[in-house]
Computed example of a mutant assay.
Amino acid sequence: MEITTMGPAEIRELISMRDAVDAVREGFLALHRGEFEMPTRTVLRDGGFLVMSVHHRPSSSAMIKTLSLNFDRSPAIVGTVTWSEFGHTDHLVADAMELTRIRTGAVSGVATDLMAPPEAATCTVIGAGGQAADQARAVQAVRPLSRLHIVSRNSDKAEALAARLREELPIADVTSGTDVEKGVRDVDVVCCATTSTTPLFPADAIAAHTHVNAIGAFRPTMRELPDELLTDSVVVIDELEAILEEAGDVLHALDAGAVTRDRLVELGPALADGIGPRTGRTVFKSVGVALQDWAIARILADRALRR
């Protein structure tokens, strides 16, 4: 048996964000076709440790990810992703932090491509932590941006991220600030990537045409979105069972009667069937599911184990 290990730099070298978006999109379509065995993730220490696993029947491949999360340390996410195939002895073990950032960005890219206006060109990312850069990269991959704004309570972190993305991405105007409500007004796409436990902005701050990706809140006690935004938006989620187990934004809105379960559309069916006429705001809520990690790990395995 041969084990190939990959760190952050090697992962970035082998996969572009466009690759990641395409792979995650196909993964959700495969989920809709019933190709995966995917248990709900195991959560220990109230989200301090996560274990995610998935088996793809057509390829006889499996992925297991183990994470520890501690937002008082840097990096906050530490763990491994292990890829194996039933008919092969070679394994891939990859850095989970980098892979998680890429796959979380990629699913926002998939949702943005599906739901944001075709002419969308402006984006605000709320948060300047480990997930934020790939949210911007993913939106840029599907909607070339003319303006990007980074918002964080920590002005130094916001400007540091903005400076990095100015150098990296072909966006004419990249700015930073600390005023969330001002930052989200009249932009085409908003990405929420925080660990907040209360809504980040009032619903009326979001314009009628805006698409919102919310990926930060992954426990029932966490929230980034106001209930009223879900009431007045087309709401697409990654996977219903995971959302009802973990998504504080949605659970709070359901308990308050602001949204009903029948209005929650899973991403796989939405990709297969569309979301119907787009007449107002749209929201994508994700807590992350194992097929996203599988989709990225599959590319890495194809390029690292078989070259």
Rank of each mutant, 00 (worst) to 15 (best):
I296T: 00
P8T: 03
L267E: 00
V234R: 13
L254T: 08
E2H: 12
L291G: 03
A160W: 04
I77F: 13
V250M: 12
A217T: 01
T124N: 06
D134W: 15
L300H: 04
G27W: 02
R261M: 03
G216Q: 10
T260S: 13
D173Y: 06
A9L: 10
F71K: 13
A158S: 09
L305F: 09
A23L: 11
R103L: 06
S61F: 12
H56M: 11
L291P: 00
A247T: 08
M17W: 07
R147S: 13
F201R: 05
A193K: 03
E241N: 12
H88M: 09
D249W: 03
D19H: 09
S16W: 08
K285Y: 06
A76F: 08
A76W: 06
D293G: 03
S108E: 03
L69E: 13
P117I: 09
G177I: 07
G274M: 07
R307E: 12
L31D: 05
A295H: 01
K65S: 00
L244N: 09
T195M: 11
G280E: 09
E246Y: 08
I275N: 02
A23F: 09
L165T: 01
A20M: 14
T194N: 02
T279Y: 09
E10D: 10
D273G: 04
H91F: 15
T221K: 13
I77L: 12
T210F: 08
L200G: 00
I299Y: 05
N213P: 08
V151M: 12
I206W: 05
G280K: 04
A128R: 09
M222C: 02
M115A: 09
A160D: 12
A247L: 01
R219M: 13
R219S: 14
E13R: 15
T112K: 04
M52V: 05
E245D: 15
I171M: 04
E37K: 12
V78N: 08
A203Y: 02
F284G: 00
G177E: 07
R306H: 07
T231S: 14
L254E: 06
D188Y: 00
N70P: 06
E168S: 12
V289N: 04
Q131R: 11
A62Y: 11
H91N: 07
A120M: 05
G274S: 01
N70L: 12
A290H: 05
F218E: 13
E224H: 11
S176C: 11
R278A: 07
A136C: 12
A141C: 10
W294C: 02
E37V: 15
G177K: 05
A208S: 14
I215A: 13
A193S: 14
V234I: 14
D273P: 00
R12E: 15
D302C: 11
A141K: 01
V265W: 06
L29F: 07
A256Y: 02
D204L: 14
D72S: 11
A141T: 10
R25N: 04
A253V: 09
G48W: 10
I296Q: 02
W83I: 00
G257Q: 08
P144R: 14
E168M: 11
G105A: 09
I126V: 15
A162P: 02
E13D: 15
T5N: 10
V93W: 04
T89Q: 11
R57K: 15
